[in-house]
Design a binder for these strands. Structure first.
Lengths: 213, 213
DNA sequence: TCAATAATGTGAATTTTTTCACAGGGCTTG
DNA sequence: CAAGCCCTGTGAAAAAATTCACATTATTGA
């Protein structure tokens, strides 16, 4: 099965490929992609092997075709609807991040329990009371959620989401969610990332990395 | 040198240790920490080896002592000041994340170019015009920055930050910053994380992971 | 007192991830 | 047309990360 890291890098490749395409590029070499993602050309070629796309030893990879292959890998043809639960600062950022139509991923609703945030359009996205989540998630057959609530509430709300049919969570709450093992959880732990940076920028130790996540 | 991944996990361990301490726990076993961070007990023990803290085969690890050791590792005694550049949604989230005094890491200023955001206190944090960044960063000997500006501006602003003395960046802009190799860059690529979740929650493929970042 | 238990610490093994290094092949140049 | 380039694709090697597995050891309980 495709390793998580390859999946992650494929997503990055695609973004850069699209930028290149918009700048008029037609082909790209593995070393160019490698530069953009801070890895080695060999790694790029390895990753592309897993999606079964072959380039041309002279021209490298065809930008459009490669995008298409990665799109297929991510099954872009059917767009993915997601919900954001927790309309705080991070939640609002997520609403705007994924409401631009550039991606096949779209936030279709936000949820909160705060009356000031409910039944309104925030950052161009309709927001509802948490109570309405099960209904809306089921109706729209949503499988993916973004969780941006305080740590104390995260587990309860995650349970509700999973009961409603969510199969994967992007979790910003600094908590370990305990969910059935068939639920995919991606934790984004900002405090940890910042501690890393602080540690490696303090000059108390050698730099060893600085790769993408 | 301590690998990045170990540094990352140490940060996570510490957070959970503090939670446990607040709940009155005095000791903890490797398997408990492992549960919280979604790894194996052996991994936990390995990580703790690198900071040279030994537990007790009967009682496990002393929570307070272990926190203290990790604090020492991160050099918590001297607090770390950081700046946030770009007061959008993510930037505001960062201002509030690291302004609570719970961490040894504190945001001391935000920067933007938007007149509406400048020379005001936002989320309890003073915000200035970008022009003032070099001065403030130098005066306060700041080594760490959080970059939350649009991709198009990220490189320019990162350059300014580095010229002002910043040695490490937490970068949210979906761009590959090109900076001198002694600058530590931690990219947090939210689109990529969400694509991963969408991929693994679509049910089109087997689940293979769901680890912390 | 002594076996049984359950944890740590760690050398060794394993697995995963990354990199090397080179065969293959088509441009380009002289 | 042949030599030189500089790509890709990939087997094999290397490196990194993780896990195994067991010697060790304090405690418990009969």
């Amino acid at each position: 099965m495709t390793p998580e890291k390859t999946v992650a890098r494929l997503s990055l490749y695609r973004r850069f490929l699209k930028l290149m395409r918009d700048e008029g590029a037609h082909s790209v070499y593995s070393h160019q992609l490698a530069d953009m993602v801070r890895i080695t050309p060999a790694q790029v070629r390895r990753d592309l092997m897993v999606i079964g796309y072959s380039g041309n030893p002279q021209k490298g990879y065809d930008v459009n075709l490669l995008i298409k292959h990665i799109d297929d890998f991510f099954n872009v043809s059917e767009s993915v609807n997601v919900v954001v639960v927790g309309i705080g600062n991070v939640g609002r950022a997520m609403l705007s991040y994924f409401r631009n139509g550039k991606s096949h991923i779209n936030v279709i609703a936000g949820f909160d329990t705060d009356p000031n945030k409910v039944d309104r359009v925030i950052n161009n996205c309709p927001c509802y009371h948490l109570e309405q989540l099960p209904e809306i998630v089921k109706q729209n057959n949503i499988k993916t959620g973004i969780l941006t609530v305080p740590a104390t509430e995260a587990q309860n709300i995650a349970n509700i989401m999973v009961e409603s049919g969510i199969k994967g969570l992007l979790n910003f709450a600094p908590t370990r969610l305990k969910l059935s093992s068939d639920i995919f959880i991606e934790d984004v732990d900002i405090t940890m990332h910042l501690e890393k940076v602080a540690y490696f920028s303090s000059g108390k130790q050698k730099k060893i990395g600085g790769k993408n996540v």
